[in-house]
Amino acid sequence: MDHTQSVAAERTAGDTAALSGLKFSKGHGTGNDFVLVADPNGALSLSPEQVAALCNRHVGIGGDGLIRAVPSRLLAEGQELLSAHPEAEWFMDYRNGDGSLSEMCGNGVRVFVHFLIAEGLVDLPAGESLVIGTRAGAKTIVRTAAGYAVDMGPWEFIFPGEATARAMDSLVSADGLEVARPALSVSMGNPHTVVALAETAELEATQLFTAPRVDPIPPHGTNVEFVVPAEPLVHEGAGTITMRVHERGVGETQSCGTGACAAAVAIRHWAGQGAPDTWNVHVPGGVVGVKFFLGPEGHEHVELSGPAVIVASGTLS
């Protein structure tokens, strides 16, 4: 270990030492992994540096992000949400692996609810639903036999005029791709830019050690999905795609729930009239389901379904 690495490790150790005695769990949804902590009294204050230290895979617990379970009434964003959704008792306070705040995480929602159940904070039998708060609004989750299904809410194009006119709104460059590729930017409460590739070999050759370059980039940055449609695209009424993703503030992850939804939105848009409403999205960590349906306010919603697993629990030394 050189001097720079040694100093960084000492700094990380100092950040986590201040949290000695903190109880935590580690969970994942199709490989998208999280450190989870319960804060029923709203007393836990986590700095970006402490979050990054906990999510560090070498000297911390390790995770793509950190989720704090806190009552909505004890968080400013939660109090605002409760006026319209008084049933959203719990708020998913989500941070990226670098400590920055994030609006939403589709895989994280499933793991968050599974954590609430495991901690005895909620009771949710199979077939019943729960409403939680997020920075992207209230989300309704149904417990299923195979995991959880989340109403992710309505989707929208980030640059609607460009998307409608040309079915693309930006160009994306990445290491391993010879030329910049056209892309479509979709909001699922957080921003995504979707690139379609022709074959699996291109997907495997794309290097995501560094962030892809997006031009123009959405105002708050973006997650970038590289997607290969199956051949044939539709089988037995369902579309199938394979995806890799580079997440803001994290890097490449094994899965991204909102990214899977955005990828299905883009491919379905490009496929045109007659494209299915049900999709299977293959990610390095497994498979998630995406389904489109008409929401109560008349806008099209997206449902994300998949497993959630708690793999360990412990206490910081």
Rank of each mutant, 00 (worst) to 15 (best):
H58P: 02
Q207I: 15
A126P: 05
L233R: 06
V194D: 11
D151C: 08
L208T: 12
G65Y: 04
V109G: 02
G153F: 00
H28P: 03
F115I: 06
T315E: 13
T134H: 05
K139M: 10
R68P: 11
G249W: 03
H3P: 03
V227Y: 01
G42T: 04
E80W: 00
V287S: 04
F293I: 00
A205I: 00
I267K: 02
V288G: 09
A118P: 10
T278I: 15
T12D: 11
A260K: 02
V51M: 11
E202V: 00
M104Y: 01
I267Y: 07
P154D: 06
M1C: 09
A165C: 09
H235W: 11
I217W: 08
V59H: 15
T222N: 12
T258S: 15
A275F: 04
C55D: 12
D33H: 00
V224P: 12
Q273R: 15
A118L: 03
A211I: 04
N190C: 05
L197Q: 06
D151R: 06
V172K: 08
G14M: 07
V186K: 09
F293R: 14
R166G: 14
A266M: 12
G189V: 05
R68S: 13
S173C: 06
T253C: 02
V122Y: 06
V186P: 07
L130R: 05
G78C: 08
D151K: 09
L81K: 07
G147P: 02
E202M: 14
S72F: 09
P191R: 01
A271Y: 09
G257M: 03
G257D: 05
Y148L: 06
A38H: 07
R95N: 13
T315D: 03
D64C: 04
L101Y: 14
H85V: 07
P86E: 14
Q79M: 06
P40M: 14
C261A: 10
A118W: 01
A138G: 10
G176L: 07
T206M: 10
V131H: 02
S313H: 14
A13R: 14
P212V: 01
V195P: 00
G21T: 02
S317G: 14
Q5F: 05
T315I: 09
H299L: 15
D33W: 01
A43E: 15
P212R: 13
W90P: 06
L203F: 02
H28Q: 06
R244V: 00
L66H: 02
A38M: 11
K26S: 13
N223R: 05
D123G: 13
V7Y: 06
V290C: 07
D169T: 00
L36V: 11
L81H: 09
F24L: 08
Y94L: 12
G289D: 11
G137H: 05
R135W: 03
L44H: 12
Q5N: 14
H3M: 13
L121F: 02
A84R: 15
T4R: 15
A308L: 03
D98T: 02
D175S: 14
C261V: 08
L177I: 01
E89C: 11
A238D: 01
L130W: 04
M1H: 12
S170F: 07
E236T: 04
A167I: 00
A211D: 03
